[in-house]
Computed example of a mutant assay.
Amino acid sequence: MENLKNWIKKNWSISLLVLIFVVLLVNKDAKAWLMRQVASTGVLNSKFTETKEENSIFSEEENISFTVRKEDGTVVNTTDLKGKVVFINFWASWCPPCRAEFPSIQSFYEKYKTNPDIVFLTVNLDDNPELGKIYLQDKGFTVPFLVPNGEIPNQYFSGSLPTTVVLDKSGQIQLHHQGLADYSKESFYEKIDELLKK
């Protein structure tokens, strides 16, 4: 035991790094904090589609129907949201990258929630939706809580969490991003404002 104490004293920096590594492995919020720091650099920022040709996930005529259910039981279908910009985020409470980006989604929501031309569909994919509700309440997030109301189209979600999709007013995908991103950046708001003006 004495040898261990001496080794720790001599190698305090390595001991500190090992301790930090262990905390990051075990604690979801610590992982989320670290990921949030990386995301804030802009390295992981999502990119909007610049032209219709690049946005060839599906044809302009195709009408992708995706329904979600609100907490009060109301069903919302994306095909009924034409004329609005739609921000869709697929997340789960157990997912560290989801936790890392959620403060930026909350900031984005706070900035635009009173705009009648934008709809937020923050879709929880926890096996037990109550865990998602508890997470939002514990963190003080006020974004809408929705769950899928049937199959999720592959064009929107292929299994990676988090995934974010932004639809323009015609229902076309203008952003499809898998993984962590920072949605509280001015550059992101500028793109949203452009879509809202169209």
Rank of each mutant, 00 (worst) to 15 (best):
M1G: 09
M1T: 14
N3R: 08
L4A: 06
K9L: 11
K9A: 14
K10Q: 10
W12L: 12
W12Q: 12
S13I: 13
I14F: 14
S15H: 02
S15M: 10
L17H: 03
L19N: 05
L19G: 10
V22S: 11
L24D: 09
L25N: 08
V26Q: 04
K31M: 12
K31R: 07
R36W: 10
S40P: 00
S40C: 04
T41Y: 15
T41G: 15
G42P: 09
V43L: 15
V43G: 00
V43R: 13
N45Q: 12
S46L: 13
K47F: 07
K47G: 05
F48E: 15
T49P: 04
E50D: 05
E53F: 01
E53L: 01
N55C: 07
S56Q: 13
I57M: 13
F58H: 12
S59K: 04
S59T: 14
E60K: 13
E61W: 06
E61D: 15
E62G: 00
N63G: 07
N63C: 05
S65K: 12
R69F: 09
E71R: 05
D72Q: 11
G73C: 06
T79I: 12
D80P: 10
K84L: 05
K84G: 07
V85N: 01
V85G: 03
V85H: 06
F87Y: 07
F90P: 02
W91D: 10
S93D: 00
S93K: 06
C95G: 13
P97Q: 05
A100F: 06
E101K: 04
F102W: 03
S104I: 02
S104R: 00
I105C: 00
T114I: 03
D117L: 06
L121H: 01
V123R: 09
N124E: 06
L125A: 00
P129R: 14
E130L: 05
L131G: 00
I134Q: 13
L136D: 06
L136K: 10
Q137C: 03
D138N: 15
K139V: 01
V143M: 02
V143G: 02
V143N: 04
F145W: 01
F145M: 02
V147Q: 08
P148H: 04
N149C: 15
G150R: 01
E151K: 13
I152Y: 07
N154I: 08
Q155G: 11
Q155C: 08
F157I: 00
P162F: 15
K169L: 00
S170K: 11
S170T: 05
Q172C: 03
Q174K: 15
Q174G: 09
H177G: 12
H177P: 13
Q178N: 14
Q178S: 15
G179W: 08
L180H: 01
L180S: 13
S184A: 13
E186K: 12
E186D: 15
Y189T: 03
E190S: 06
I192Y: 07
D193W: 06
L196E: 02
K198P: 00
